[in-house]
Design a protein around this nucleic acid. Sequence first.
DNA 1: TGGGAACATTTGGGCGTCAATGGGATACGA
DNA 2: TCGTATCCCATTGACGCCCAAATGTTCCCA
Lengths: 152, 152
Amino acid sequence: MNRFLSNATNKIDAKGRVSVPAQFRNVLARLDIQELYAIQDFVFPAITMGGPELLDRYERQIVGDDPFAMDINEMSLLIHGGGVFMKLDGEGRLMMSDFIRDYTKISDQVTFVGRSDHFQLWDPVRYEEKRQEALDRRMAGGQTRAGRGETG
Amino acid sequence: MNRFLSNATNKIDAKGRVSVPAQFRNVLARLDIQELYAIQDFVFPAITMGGPELLDRYERQIVGDDPFAMDINEMSLLIHGGGVFMKLDGEGRLMMSDFIRDYTKISDQVTFVGRSDHFQLWDPVRYEEKRQEALDRRMAGGQTRAGRGETG
DNA sequence: TGGGAACATTTGGGCGTCAATGGGATACGA
DNA sequence: TCGTATCCCATTGACGCCCAAATGTTCCCA
């Protein structure tokens, strides 16, 4: 598999490190991603991580024709000022910086959530909350499309 | 037969493994499905499993042209964050991960339920409950037992 | 029609490998 | 020089891979 799927929760050790799930590391290797770009999610209390092309994509939103694009100056402030490059240590771990902790409220555990072409870092509790909210909202409004448990 | 039909209940062994019914494995082989995509059912306490095209189908809902479709970010959280790829061991068994147990309340047995182009994993008791509920609901409009369900 | 052989399926368990985690030692920056 | 980050190695436990027992099914022949 060459996409980030599923989720896994790992502990933060005494030094503030946490192992990136092996499954995700495999995807990173397959995509030949050496350096990780990290930025806060604009909607959820989570940190988005992915390859450098992730930054490219955000930058395209700045200059792009997206009608919902934010103010350019404001957007740049978030993307360029709020993003950071990180890399894993020899065992595939990364440091939980204050930058990450601030936006996520992560304390002693991290839930890694696959998002297809990138993945996210969540506090386990908040992830479960938001996941449930999303589920509720889908069942409330989405009865038409593929609702009722039918998938086809 | 190249569709998933009927249902069967198998035991979970001490290691947390359970055999996928041979009948279902035959269908998988016939459809040349090597890797299974699994995701929680959005309505029932069950896990839906099928080939990779199952994920494609869900993803089409994300990028679909439905203007009232769910928020993309939220939908991805459910589909990508909540879905997993799994594969069977040499004997055709799969691991009952916490992921599966959480959504299904499966403890020591699993009921595999055919759903034509995919199948589901249920806790035997809950399956029987839901099946009975569905049956009752269907017969509610009609007469007694003998009465056939009226809503074709 | 009954018995049983041959086969298929389910279940159990040993063992090696790898991932997650912990911790000491060293390098680096404030 | 102290606090922090990085590198390296050790430990533990989970999972994959393999083989074997037990249970169930089919089919043939007496």
